[in-house]
Every structure is written in structure tokens, then in C-alpha cells.
Amino acid sequence: MEEKAVSSVRYEHGGDEFVFVELSEAMTLEAMFKGMAITNKLKEKNLPGIIDVCPGNASYMIRVDPEVLHPNDLIVVLKELEHSVTDYKSLPIASRLVDVPVLFEDPWTHEALMRFRNNHQDPEATDLEYSAKVNGYQTGEELIKAITTYPFLVSMIGFVPGLPFSFQLTSQEKQIEVPKYVRPRTFTPERAFGFGGAFAVIYPVDGAGGYQLYGRAPAPILDVEQELADFKDSMVFPRQGDILRYRNVTREEYDAVREEVKNGTFQYRMKEMSFTPGEVMADPLAFADKVMGRLYND
């Protein structure tokens, strides 16, 4: 008997306005790049009735006016795109490599995480100590080193405006994975650096949150007033496909960057680079080394 290849991709309706497509239950580079290719092609089609195209980590979501474009007709288009992006590995991505300073174990997120110990798996440890332990590291220092050695690929923007979900470019066995808080915090300081599941994030604004907190970035990723040069075109800085390198900085450097932000002179250290998903997927570590070289040496 001939077996038909069955796609594991799930097409689902989010009420009458949304179509949600899950490419993979697990986070994989393959799902992320495929979703990116599909959503880019969909945007190029400029179909009437589409309000939002939202690429995600291992899924994506489309918002439509269902009286203009019936969600089932959209799904037909999306399935065609799914089958037509077999070349997604060779489609170039115009990316930006960005140096993102982070002050680890800073006083502000420390104060916040201590306030919510009762919401945490391990009330006796800090988030960093707990995360180090569950990932097989002896100390928080070792975990910080693992986070800052290789850069992260921005795989989704969301939760709140500008928040970059970023996924580390490293070997599968070196991937850091941490649980989220048992009960989410009701407060997280603006610019907190957190980790949940396989994703590192920076919280753009004060607010609720469930990721483990390790530090704080001195530079914003959301600038509502668009005063800084990097935010001239958009109040949101990160874009899917950007590569962020979280760099461990001293309190001195943190304060110096804060000063530049306040003066309106801060600009991210940044390089443009085009790459293909195939290049990243073939050898994430070699690609990560290339990124580091390009960002800091070229």
C-alpha cells in the first residue's frame, strides 16, 4: 500500500478573524525559517482582506477581515505556500547583527525576583542559580558565560510591543532551556533580561511576566517617542531574523550607556549581514563564530 506523506502542520481558526498555523510543536530552526519564508511570500501577495501577518517562533498567525477574505480560502493559499517553499533554505535573509549590553545580576531585577519568590519553583535560589542548576551548570557565572558566548536569532516579536523572543545559535545539546515561573509575576522592570523555555527576551516595558530574570539591559528596545537614531523608522527596534549578541557588561558601562540613552546619543553597535537558513542549519556553531567575527572584528 502506498503511504501518503501527511503534513504535521496544523491549520486552526482563531475565531472568525485569525488563522493560526503551527509548523512544529517544538522550537526548531527549520520551523522558524519555514514560517518566515511563508509569511514573507504571503506579504508579497498583498491579498485584500489581510490585516496582520505575524510570524512566530515555530508557528505563525494571520488576521483577516473575514468578509473580504474567508479564512478557509486563506488556508488554501497558506497550504500552497507551505508546499512551495521547499527552497526556503536558500532564500537570503537581510539581517542585522547587534551588540546588546546586559548587566547581569543587577539590583533592579534582583529586587523584583526576590519579591516573587513564592511564585517560583525554587524560592531558596535566585532565578540565575536555579536556571544554572537545571541546565547542569555549577554556578550562575557559568550560565552567564554560556548565554554570552554565542549570539541569538530573533525568532518572534510579541507579547508586548518590541519584545524579541530570541533563540541561541548553538548546538542542540548546548541549548539552554528553563521553565517559566509557576505563577507569573505581576511586575517585571523595563529592560529586564529574561529566559523562558528556549528563549531569551528583553522586556520592553514594566509589566507582568513569567520568564526567569537574570539581568537588565541599559539600552531600550522600544522607544515610543522615537528619539534615538535606531528608532527613527519604528518605535520597535528588533525584527525577526536579527541576530543579537547579549554582552556581559560592568555596572560602569551600564551607567555610561544609560547616560548616552538619556542624552539621546546612544546607538547600537550593529552590522548588516545577509545569510541563508541553510547556512545556519548546516552548522549553527560555525555560523555563530562568523557572526561574532563580523560584528566585532570586520
Binding site: 475565531g15 510543536e25 507569573p184 523555555g197
Partner: peptide, 26 residues
């Protein structure tokens, strides 16, 4: 749990939430 989702059975790999969507944390 699939890689990237986090430990609770109500967790999934972070994804988009439609307006009006209903979730049941834990």
C-alpha cells in the same frame, strides 16, 4: 513537553495569541 515550551503541561512553544483567545495557565 516539546523542546522550547517550558515545563507545565499548559505551556507551548511561545506563539501568537488571537484577540479574544482563551488560555488556561496551569
Amino acid at each position: 513537553q516539546p523542546f522550547g515550551a517550558g515545563g507545565n503541561p499548559s505551556n507551548v512553544t511561545d506563539l501568537g495569541y488571537p484577540i479574544g483567545s482563551i488560555q488556561v495557565p496551569a
